[in-house]
Design a protein around this nucleic acid. Structure first.
Lengths: 211, 211
DNA sequence: CGCATATAGTAAAGTACTTACCTATGAAAG
DNA sequence: CTTTCATAGGTAAGTACTTTACTATATGCG
């Protein structure tokens, strides 16, 4: 549903082709909303049918023709309408957390390897995003409202990555060369009990919630 | 795709009906992977066709019959196979961040109101999750591997919420009674420049990335 | 008594997303 | 000098997921 609005938001800045939008997304909103080519083209077709954008063909030499899409007044209205709606409970669908949640179904070796390489990946990603943030901040003239919000979303994502990294490092017991943290060895009190996770049982991991 | 594995993961603990699974998900994995009724039933049908689960009817008195689904050896193999695959670049699809990214298309009042109420929501959610975590930790006998991983995913989500809260509080200028943080007022050097965000232009927010 | 809620689902329709493929150009690699 | 890669611009088909609505029975609430 929201890809519509990501596209409208980008088109509200300037007209673009489907391909331009694809690149724009992989450059600017990739950490928020990713979309593949077909999805973008499909959504553009729908937006056109709904009268939110208009399209005109532009012949190019050496390249295929492209369709330039321009946002209409109706499209702008839809965008503002979307932005004024209350924020829905975000659809939680996190494959990484799912893998962790069911981590006991993989061998210890495999899960350490997978979480380790995931940690490396988000560390690189975060470093890159932080460099971007620094670059934008060092760059004066960023007083545009648009940029302020873009920076905020970037900062939030960075903070979330950092939080995840900390938890992963703690879990993996700092088997890494970069952080050199003090290894926490907690004395485990070796108690035993019979309360395990029961799917529909009494020891709930979290509360019962309607819907 | 991963709902299959969430269901298999839950069924690997104990057999359950579709309804049980729905409740289990809204109790235990709701912060990771949510699913609606029809989706669960559909996926169960597919899993049965694939031979990953078997189902038998169980008559109950006072209630409708239910179908108890049990994971098969094949299902367990599929689950372990899934768990051994490399973690894919997680599909980023965050409506909240999208709303923030395009925040300039809403009025200041609206965005402050929406972010404020979102902040309240995740604060409550986090408090609840932390209470759950404390309850589980206070509860010895949690030496089960399964529970360790469940706790880890819970902790990661909590840490991510906390990170987001901090950024939101900072952005909203601490108009809240709970945290009483020192208001950071940064002296802005009032420079001007003409480099704005151009969608396909040279001042990229982030790098160009394949795919 | 009537209504809400919990139980245990099915049906149908639509939206969102993925995988695989196609055409064509131009530049670099061998 | 031709195969391969990267860029440009897209389509077709299929899978995954959501929404809405519907069918039943039983239990508790006021």
């Amino acid at each position: 549903m929201s890809l519509r609005f990501a596209l409208l938001g980008l088109l509200a800045v300037e007209p673009a082709s489907g391909y331009d939008l694809k690149r724009a997304i992989s450059r600017s909103t990739y950490f928020i909303w990713n979309a593949t080519g077909p999805q973008i083209y499909n959504t553009l077709h729908k937006l056109r049918e709904e009268g939110c954008i208009t399209s005109r063909s532009l012949a190019q030499d050496g390249k295929p023709d492209k369709q330039i899409h321009t946002i209409t007044a109706r499209g702008r209205a839809r965008l503002e309408e979307f932005m004024s709606e209350p924020i829905r409970a975000s659809v939680t669908r996190d494959e990484v957390l799912l893998r962790i949640f069911f981590g006991n179904f993989a061998s210890k070796k495999v899960i350490r390897r997978e979480l380790g390489s995931y940690l490396e990946r988000i560390r690189r990603e975060r470093a890159y995003m932080e460099a971007t943030e620094a670059r934008i901040n060092a760059h004066p003239g960023s007083k545009h409202e648009a940029r302020r919000f873009q920076l905020l979303s970037l900062r939030i994502k960075v903070a979330q990555y950092r939080a995840m990294e900390q938890e992963l490092v703690r879990f993996l017991g700092d088997g890494d060369r970069e952080t050199r943290l003090v290894k926490l060895r907690r004395h485990r009190r070796g108690a035993s009990a019979k309360n395990t996770l029961r799917i529909a049982g009494s020891t709930r991991l979290v509360r019962n919630r309607s819907n």
